[in-house]
Computed example of a mutant assay.
Amino acid sequence: MSSILSTADKRILHEESASRIWRKRLEAVIRYVLMFCAGVSVLTTVGIVVLLLFESLQFFGEVSIIEFLTGTEWAPQNQQFGILPLFCGTMLVTVGAAIVAVPLGLGTAIYLSEYATPLVRETVKPALEILAGVPSVVFGYLAIIVISPFIRDRFPSADPANAAAAAIVVGFMILPTIISLSEDVLRSVPRSLREGAYALGATKYDVTVKVVVPAALSGIVASFLLAVSRAIGETMAVTLAAGGTPRITLNPLESIQTMTAYIVQKTAGDNPYGTLEYRTIFAVGLTLFVSTMLLNLAAQWILSRVREKYE
């Protein structure tokens, strides 16, 4: 009997040992797969930066970087390489989109978090996720057939394609980002803060405005900055809605051109490889990359100043 038990015990121990060896090998494979994924991500980023720098440095070898950054005319076909018209157009659309999206997004997030019933919340949030999944070219088409005619009916002097239409449509595109992230942050505020405010006699409005929103400010700011980053990099909707006229203007009713729209225009055209006009694509792309990186750095600094921590 003891020999039978001993044999059974040995078999069990052998199976457990084999199982441990198999788990260790599986964990090693998973670790290497995850390392590979991380490496691909890093190498992709490095490759993009190296490509931008390589082509851009060749461009700046023929064009003064001072002229590029301070010039007020952008016409590569006429050897005029001032980036300010494209940068101005990008900022005009981005600021306009923020003006549209930030109040609507924050208001909707506060309503869903603090006032909406569970049924309303469960209905609205999936609808917002559907809105986030609509392709940008569809928004551009919407701007052409709906928003631009609406603007021109009220402002006859407006160009057929204008910055206002692009700003409005991009504002609606970034709404789901602001609403979803802000609502999650607002709902994550500790319940004890709300209960403490109610115990002191605060109203629902006071609790929301003076307790919940300030407590969630860091996350709300992060959602704003993430949405603005998307607005800066938006391409197809802006290309269709804003027009293709690079100019320095603060008039949203005029046709403008953004950095992303210029890149789309040139990559779709017939530009021989290695020419100066071809390299403008990479110079503009590098400017866009640096602008977004600076925005992210500013976001990190702002978040470090306003972040709230709870035990």
Rank of each mutant, 00 (worst) to 15 (best):
V169S: 00
Y115H: 09
V100T: 04
T245D: 06
V290H: 10
M1H: 13
A143F: 05
F87W: 14
D184V: 08
P135M: 00
V189Q: 02
K24R: 15
I179K: 03
T239Q: 08
L288T: 11
V146W: 11
L5F: 08
E195P: 11
K24P: 02
S218C: 08
P126H: 02
T177I: 13
S291M: 15
L240N: 04
L186S: 09
Q80L: 14
L51K: 12
L106E: 10
G269T: 10
N271I: 10
F68M: 06
E114N: 07
V146T: 11
I147D: 00
P190G: 02
M1P: 12
G140M: 09
L86D: 03
E311I: 09
D206G: 12
E114Q: 15
L297K: 11
T7R: 14
V100A: 02
R247S: 06
V40F: 09
P272C: 07
T235D: 01
V221S: 10
E234S: 01
T280S: 15
A222H: 06
W301G: 08
I99S: 01
E27G: 07
I130E: 00
A132V: 01
T90P: 11
P149V: 11
G233N: 06
A231I: 04
L253M: 07
I178Q: 02
V40H: 02
T245W: 03
A298L: 13
V238G: 02
V264D: 00
V134W: 00
T239W: 04
P190C: 01
S3N: 12
F81S: 03
A268K: 09
D184R: 12
F60N: 03
A199R: 08
R31H: 05
Y273P: 02
D184L: 04
I178H: 02
A127N: 05
G61M: 07
F59E: 01
V284N: 06
M293L: 15
T7N: 13
Y278G: 09
C37S: 14
T235Y: 01
R279Y: 04
G105N: 11
V264H: 03
R25M: 13
V124H: 07
W22A: 14
T249L: 07
G201E: 05
F36D: 04
T292V: 15
R11N: 11
T203M: 12
P176Q: 00
G233D: 05
S182I: 06
E55F: 11
Y198L: 14
P252K: 04
A101Y: 04
F87T: 14
N296K: 13
I179E: 01
I110G: 02
